[in-house]
Design a protein around this nucleic acid. Structure first.
Lengths: 200, 200
DNA sequence: GTCTATAAGGCGATAGAC
DNA sequence: GTCTATCGCCTTATAGAC
C-alpha cells in the first residue's frame, strides 16, 4: 500500500476531515483564535476525541502547514514542468505565479494558514516548517536569477526585493479575492503583467 | 490646552506607555496571542491596573488601530502636500508610497498591528475601524484614477488590482525589512519602480 | 474511536484596600 | 493610580468507561 493510498483509506478518513476543518478555521480565525472545541463541534465530535488522532494542537497545525506547503510546491512545480524546454523567462515566471495563486485560492485553506499565521505561531512549530519554506523560496530565487542572467530581467533590478514584492502582491490576494469577477489565472496574469511590463 | 498637549501631558503618560507596549506586542504576537499580563509586566504593573486606563482589551486594541491609521494617513497626506502643484502622477504615487512605507516601518508598531491582525479581531472592533480604513483606501483610489485619466497609467491597466497589489507589496515589507541594508525610501522607490517601469 | 468527566492552569475582568 | 485577591469562565490535555 502506497503512502497516497494510506492517506485516503477509510482508516484515516476522520483524520483527513479534522485536518480540513482545522485548516479552514486556522486560516480564517488564526491559530490562537481557533479552539479545539470549535473544530470538534464542526465535526460533531468532542474536543477530547481529537487527541486520538493528534497528540497536540501544535502537532495539528504543523501538519496543516506542511500539507499547505506541499500543495503549493506541487502545483508550482507541475506548472513549470508543463512548459516546453525552450519556454521564455516570462512564460516561466507567469506559470509559476499562476500555480502559486491557484494553490493559494483554490485549495487555499491549507496554504493560507501559513500566510495568515506566520509569525503568530509557537516557535517550535515555526522552526519545523521553515526548512521546506526556504526550499520553496529558493525555487523562485533560482528562476528569477536565471531570468536576470539571460538578460530578460534588467541588470539594475534588485531581485531580492523583486521576489519579496511578488510574494507580497500574490499572497495578499487571499484577502480580497472573490470568486466570479476575475479568474485566478487572470489575476496572476494581471499582477505579473504590472511587474513585467510596467503600468506607465 | 490643545488635544495634542493633552495627549502628551503627564496626566496621560501612563496611558501612552500602555498603548506603546500594546502596539508592539499586538503587532508581534497578534491580538489573541497577547495577554494583558504580558503588557502589564513589561510596564512593571499588574494586569488589573490597566483597567483604570482602558475599559477592556477590545477598547485597547481599538485605540491602537485608530492611532496607527491616523499615523499613516497623516504621513501620506504630508508627503503629498509637500509636492509642488504641478507634480507628475509618478511623483505623486511614489511620494504616497514612501509616506505609507515610512509610517509602516518607522513608527510601525501601531500601523502594523492592523496589518498583522486584520481578520483576526473581534467583529465589533473590525467594524469600528473599517470606516477610516475605507477613507484611506479612497485617497489612493483617487490618485490612481487621476493618473489613469491623465494617461500616465495605461488605459488597459486594471486599477483595482493595481491598488491591491501596491498595498500587498508595500505592506508585506514589514515581514522582511531589516534596518541597515536599504533605506525605507529606497525600498519604496524600488517597489514602485517595478510597477511603473516594469522589470524587463 | 468516541464518549464523559475532570484536571491544571490561563484568561479577561472586577472589588475593595491603600 | 496601583495594588492584592479573586471570580467565573475557557483552554489544552488526560484517564478511563463504553
Amino acid at each position: 500500500m502506497s503512502d497516497l493510498d494510506k492517506k485516503n483509506s477509510s482508516k484515516n478518513k476522520t483524520k483527513t476531515k479534522i485536518l480540513d476543518v482545522s485548516a479552514r478555521m486556522f486560516s480564517k480565525q488564526g491559530y490562537n483564535g481557533t479552539v479545539l472545541r470549535d473544530i470538534a463541534n464542526e465535526l460533531n465530535m468532542k474536543a477530547g476525541s481529537l487527541y486520538y488522532h493528534f497528540e497536540s494542537k501544535e502537532q495539528l497545525v504543523l501538519e496543516v502547514l506542511n500539507i499547505g506547503l506541499q500543495n503549493i510546491t506541487d502545483k508550482v512545480m507541475a506548472a513549470i514542468d508543463a512548459l516546453p524546454e525552450d519556454a521564455t523567462s516570462r512564460e516561466r515566471l507567469f506559470a509559476a505565479a499562476k500555480g502559486h495563486l491557484t494553490a493559494l485560492l483554490e485549495k487555499g485553506d491549507y496554504t493560507s494558514t501559513s500566510i495568515r499565521n506566520l509569525g503568530l505561531l509557537p516557535d517550535s512549530v515555526l522552526e519545523e516548517v521553515m526548512v521546506s519554506r526556504k526550499k520553496y523560496e529558493n525555487m523562485w530565487r533560482t528562476w528569477i536569477e536565471e531570468a536576470q542572467a539571460k538578460g530578460d530581467i534588467r541588470a539594475d533590478i534588485n531581485i531580492k526585493v523583486l521576489r519579496l514584492s511578488i510574494f507580497g502582491a500574490l499572497n495578499r490576494t487571499v484577502a480580497w479575492y472573490k470568486e466570479g469577477e476575475l479568474t485566478i489565472n487572470e489575476i496572476a496574469e494581471i499582477q505579473m503583467g504590472f511587474l513585467w511590463d510596467g503600468i506607465s
